[in-house]
Structures are given as structure tokens and as C-alpha cells.
Design a binder for these strands. Structure first.
Lengths: 147, 147
DNA sequence: TTTTGTTAAATCGTTTGCGATATAAATATT
DNA sequence: AATATTTATATCGCAAACGATTTAACAAAA
């Protein structure tokens, strides 16, 4: 009836679906590392800069601490990171990689980019398309993030 | 270290973030209808074609029945739809809108498109960009869906 | 017809995501 | 200094997602 309410006209439904399917494509690869996709995001943040407080990680991932804290607790239990009280500010929990967490980076590098390339080899998009897609997504993200 | 493992180079992280933020933007609007975003997707499927078995709804949303079934159970409890056993095939649950569910369409039409336009008015993308974005997302979705 | 296999939903357990609230430490105010 | 406010995390409850398994009905094969 109302074309505005049809699923096929919804950008949001496509984003929602594409995000889920890509996450699913990551899953068999990440299983080999013993982590989930959101946990992989945390690992990338820490590989880039180790020893960060919870808040910085959450901000980087555009998530709230009530999502990140339990995630970090599970990851600490798995032994890929540790949380220690901040020295200057005792409210902070500083999150640092363990040896196991640091070692995972090289294995991820061997597995993930190659594996995801394989998963997406049926996709007709070229590098240029992905770059433009990234920009378009960034402009959506930025206009919604600061509200 | 490895640029392939940097968050800023991840299309997937952008999809994941954009999908979450857009869903969050829908939330205050959908609250006025008393439903969540995934429930809204189910409503759109049923507004387009009423009285469908669970499987058809799941397929349309690219979800599994183990996600859709509890969703439908909650929606039935809220009184927007009913589930009845299929007549020819008694394994099927036929999902149909109630009067309350049908009435919601017009309110959604008044609220959602206008409200989301408002939410995204800071976004510089034009209609043409959204159309291309939709195509790009479709090609990602299609290459991952059939696996 | 009995057996075997397939299909449609549902159930179970775990991880996310998030609104709301709580706790404790740091900072600002009086 | 004592009080009030802000900030950093954590906790709680609920709704999604999803892999794995179960149940019941249908279909195909022996």
C-alpha cells in the first residue's frame, strides 16, 4: 500500500541484513581463533593500542560500557586480556592484552583477510566500490553518532 | 601493524555500526507504536502480504525460525498478530494480523518516514546515493546469502 | 503399510545490545 | 572540610540472533 513501508525500499533493512550476513561469514574464521565478532573488534582496538580503559574501547566501538564490560569479562575469562585498576584514576579498568592475546594477531592476519576475501569472492564490488561504500556508511554513522 | 586488521579499514565494522545506529534512530519512533525494530520488519512483511507461515516470514527477513518464532510469540502476546495452525499442512503456523496490527500501518505511515527523515537530515547523502548504497548492499547480501 | 527421510516449528543455551539503575571514585561547589 | 555533582564501570532485565537439538507432521521408499 504505502511504498515507504515496503521492505524492499528500506535501506535500514539492507544494513541490518548485510551486517548480520557478514558477521556470519566471519564466524567460521573466528571460531579458529576462539573468539566472536564483537570480541574480534575489541582485539583490533587493542592490537592497535594496548592498555586502554574500558571507556576508550567503548567509544572506539561506538558501544556503551554496559555492552563492553560483560564482553571484556568473558574475554578475560578466556585469557586473551586482563583488566587492572587504573593507577591515577582508580575508577578506571585498564584493559591489556595477554601473551595469548598478542599472539592471536599474527594468526588473525594469516586467517581473516584471506578467508573473508574468499567468502566475498562472489561479490561483484571492486575496491573502488568498497571505498565509496565506506564513505557513505561513514556519513550515515557520523550524522547519527553525534546526537 | 597490519593495516588489514585496523578497525578503520573494516567495511564490516561500518556496516555493524551503521545498522545499530539506524536501529537506535528508529527506537523512539517505534516506541510510540509499542514495537521494536525486528518486530517492525515483521509488521512490514505482513502489511505487504497477510497470513503467511513462519517460514515465509523468516525467509523474507533472511532469519532462521529460531529467531522468528520467539519474536512472533512476543508479538502475539502484545495482540498485533495471531498464529493459527495451517489447514492443509498442520505443521505450519499461519501468522495473521489482528485489527490492532492492521491499524498500526496507518500510524506507522504517519510517523516513521517523516521521523526518520528528520533523524537523517544531517546526513549529506542524496536520493541517488541511497539508491546506489542499496544496490551495493544488495550485491553483498546476495553473494553471502546463497552459500 | 511400515519404515525412512524430510520439513515446519519450537526449545535450549550462550552471546550481544541496550535502557535503566547502582556503586564508587574523582571533581566541583559551598 | 563537607556536600553536591560528575564520571567510570558494573549490574540487572529483556529482546534479539544463532548454533544445536527436539518434536510432530508430511512425503517417499521399501
Amino acid at each position: 500500500m504505502h511504498p515507504e513501508l515496503q521492505l524492499d525500499n528500506q535501506i535500514c533493512f539492507r544494513l541490518y541484513t548485510a551486517a548480520r550476513l557478514i558477521t556470519q561469514a566471519y564466524t567460521p574464521l573466528l571460531n579458529q581463533l576462539g573468539i566472536t565478532y564483537p570480541q574480534y573488534l575489541v582485539m583490533m582496538v587493542l592490537w592497535e593500542q594496548d592498555a586502554q580503559p574500558v571507556n576508550d574501547i567503548a567509544r572506539r566501538l561506538v558501544l556503551e560500557t554496559n555492552t563492553v564490560t560483560p564482553l571484556l569479562q568473558r574475554m578475560e575469562k578466556q585469557g586473551v586480556l586482563v583488566r587492572t585498576r587504573g593507577k591515577e584514576d582508580k575508577r578506571q579498568q585498564i584493559v591489556s592484552l595477554t601473551e595469548k592475546g598478542r599472539e592471536m594477531e599474527e594468526r588473525a592476519f594469516q586467517l581473516i583477510p584471506r578467508g573473508m576475501g574468499e567468502e566475498l569472492k562472489a561479490c561483484p564490488l571492486k575496491l573502488k566500490d568498497y571505498l565509496r561504500l565506506a564513505e557513505e556508511l561513514d556519513s550515515i554513522i557520523n550524522s547519527l553518532k553525534n546526537k
